[in-house]
């Protein structure tokens, strides 16, 4: 067990260094992209305001948004603040970026966690069924469904679900994370979950087919392996083989895939949150991008980079716990 601990600490350390350099690179690239973007934040702000302003007011606004400073200077100004632990203030919301992230992250986290668990469990379960009934009708139908699901864009799927389940059937609310007209302190857990179901389901549909198809493929590899042939020779039945050899050998790649899907999950949440007007990080990041809110955009980008590399690290540590061969080689 201490071997495992040592290994985990080492992974944690190497990943720490890797993550820091990654964060630096991500911040530079994002900053360059924002600087190169044709969006003028002041112009966007004025459009939102809907009134004419005098040139003097406009100059003040430009000063406030900091658009006239040279980009390199702006970047280093931002970087030194970040190194002091200050992510800056969102020009759009007029609040500290850290506060916005911490508030919205919990909404997104609930959404992503539900979607993640749902897609993992559904994907793995259906993948197993497809693998066990390979080339029978159950497999053929499910496989086609998976292909269609991975081909369909998430936002379209979200709109269809919204139209069918919320507008026509009125089963679910049309948007937001809580009912309108209720004070945030008064929102019950039930109401939150109720608002979460449809976006979470939409988001899970995105990565679920991927996991299902991978699981199917892996299970079919396992079932055609020599050790399964030997298990059959020893009289093990189909389901005993799945229990004794199948799950053991496919869980590992499925979990890796599951933890590596954090990036997709984050990307998907941007779309799902916008479709369902769900107040999470995803909708905040698209608002920041469209309004040229540099501090907020960079803050969320960095945060999501940390989140994704945490997922990869978790996958790496799990490797060692599940696969004795890797444990042995690395020890």
């Amino acid at each position: 067990m201490s071997e495992l601990l040592k290994r985990s600490v080492r992974i944690f350390f190497t990943y720490g260094i890797r993550t820091l350099s990654l964060l630096f690179a991500v911040s530079v690239v994002s900053f360059v992209l924002i600087s190169a973007s044709p969006i003028n934040p002041v112009q966007q702000y004025l459009i939102g305001l809907g009134t004419a302003v005098s040139p003097q007011q406009r100059a003040e606004l430009e000063d406030y948004w900091g658009v006239n400073e040279p980009p390199v200077q702006r970047y280093f100004g931002w970087l030194s603040e970040v190194l002091h632990g200050n992510l800056g203030e969102s020009a759009l919301y007029r609040r500290p970026v850290a506060e916005i992230i911490s508030e919205r992250f919990w909404n997104s986290f609930a959404l992503m966690l539900c979607a993640w668990l749902l897609s993992g469990v559904m994907g793995f379960g259906l993948g197993c069924i497809m693998g066990m009934y390979q080339d029978r009708w159950a497999d053929k139908i499910l496989k086609k469904c998976c292909y269609i699901l991975s081909a369909v864009p998430t936002f379209w799927l979200g709109l269809v679900l919204l139209l069918v389940c919320s507008v026509w059937l009125k089963w679910f609310p049309i948007g937001f994370s809580a009912p309108i007209g209720v004070r945030s302190e008064d929102v019950t857990l039930g109401q939150r979950i109720y608002h979460l179901i449809l976006p979470a389901f939409t988001l899970s549909l995105m990565s679920f087919s991927n996991i299902a198809l991978h699981t199917r493929q892996k299970l079919s590899d396992v079932l055609s392996s020599e050790y399964v042939l030997f298990a059959r020779a020893r009289g093990e039945g189909k389901w005993t083989i799945l229990r004794r050899h199948g799950l053991r050998n496919i869980l590992f790649p499925a979990l890796t895939l599951q933890f590596a899907s954090f990036a997709e999950l984050f990307g998907g949440s941007v779309i799902a949150e916008n479709v369902f007007s769900y107040p999470g990080l995803g909708s905040a990041v698209s608002a920041a991008g469209l309004n040229g809110d540099v501090a907020l955009l960079l803050g969320i980008t960095l945060f999501s980079a940390v989140f994704v590399s945490f997922g990869n690290m978790a996958a790496n540590i799990l490797y060692g716990i599940i696969d004795p061969q890797i444990r042995e080689v690395e020890a």
Partner: peptide
């Protein structure tokens, strides 16, 4: 299979690696 008739397979790849 495995009760009356038993097989000794050819190689270690017939054992479950995990």
């Amino acid at each position: 299979r495995g009760t009356e008739i038993a097989l000794v397979p050819q190689s270690v790849s017939f054992l479950d690696p995990l």
